[in-house]
Amino acid sequence: MEFAPIIEKVAFNLMKYSATVLPDNAIKAIKTAYEKEKSTTGKAQLGAIIKNFESGAEKSTPMCQDTGIHIYYVEIGADCPIDDLGKFREALTNASRKTTTEVPMRPNAVDPFGSNSGDNTGRYIPWINWEIVSGDKIKITAFPKGGGSENMSTVKMLKPGVGLTGVMKEVVDWMISAGGQPCPPTVVGVAIGGGADIAIKIAKKQLMRPIGEPHPQKEVAEMEQKLLKAINTTGIGPMGLGGNITSLAVHMDYAMRHPASLPMAIAVQCWAARQSAAEISADGKVKYLHHDIKD
């Protein structure tokens, strides 16, 4: 069966909805933060954020002018009867191009040796993370990532001797220096192990978890809680203007590490935790997972 035409249509919808409507879990997290925020200035910032995303959803307008660099995660079921796998990249690229003019999304793909391509596509962009999984479905997630929060992401190669406490200290220090720059309240993705590239990939993937859902492993979940509490003790607050809610959640995961290495990565997500996913069944039926999308 040919899936590329379905993928193009679905990816367009996913990218469009990710830019214009926040997933329910993100809305809930920000509204809870508004209730918990004690600083008047911080509360006012959260109030503006809520008014803004509600207005964006109502008008079907991007909630933030930075509609991000276009990233897709594609999980392909090993048993899915696909005849046109080679056309998937083109389908996703076409979808991104189309959102640029039709949503509209801001053209955010700049050639370091030239100029802005004008349509959110170009060398390696949209970036596609491919994964072969078991089953017969295809899952696509659109994950546009804003520049302001991405600029606060980092990889550090720590000495194994600093231990897990050393990892937490690096995270706290890093988020203090980030201050208001990544548009807090943030979601902080942390990963250790693997290698430099592996750690940042895992860290970034943590940003796609439902906000505040703890890691299934107890030690990791406890570390997430400690880190969140520590970051929110700093007083940086919403937009860095002061308050007790600097981050909505810390999501952590890990890979095995080399004996000589303790790679650590931090991926930072602004309050606009935008994503939208869909599952395409073997018969071509589409189920949207974050948004109520018709057609």
Partner: peptide
Amino acid sequence: FKDIADIAEKNRPKAYEIIGA
């Protein structure tokens, strides 16, 4: 923003205490 950065600096030891550093 400098005022808030100063507050965050003042709170750094409290944050360290939470993580046991």
